[in-house]
């Protein structure tokens, strides 16, 4: 990633994804608390949550933002430990691949649950 994009730009993305994700996480937690924590976790309630399109969009946005922030954070930690062109590329592309896999897996749940394919 560092060869594709400047580190200063990556850090701006890191901070921006963090700030926006905090807002979405607050919405996500408020939804759970306002419904009553235990009741909100009942199967039918959770499915109803997914079927609400605005909430499904919030979940998808949260999935993308936290994945980008989380795996970039992991990349930064791993690059602090060791340096070198091969190692840095392996860490960067490894984190990118893991991020894409996680977003795809999470999106599958959101799309299938919101379309009633349960």
């Amino acid at each position: 990633m560092s060869s594709i994009m400047r580190e200063s730009h990556i850090m701006k993305i890191h901070y921006l994804t963090a700030l926006v994700a905090v807002g979405f996480v607050i919405i996500h937690i408020m939804v759970r608390v306002m419904q009553g924590f235990s009741d909100s976790l009942l199967f039918d309630n959770v499915i109803a949550n997914y079927k609400s399109i605005p909430y499904a969009i919030v979940l998808e946005a949260m999935l993308i933002l936290i994945s980008v922030h989380g795996f970039n954070g992991l990349r930064i930690i791993l690059l602090e430990i060791k340096q070198g062109r091969v190692y840095e590329n392996a860490v960067t592309y490894g984190c990118l691949a893991a991020m894409i896999v996680l977003i795809a897996y999470g999106s599958r749940t959101i799309i299938m649950a919101s379309m009633g394919m349960v």
Partner: peptide, 11 residues
């Protein structure tokens, strides 16, 4: 993410 994917396997 893994935990919530269990939704797709039913109640």
């Amino acid at each position: 993410i893994y935990e919530t994917s269990s939704l797709l396997d039913g109640k």
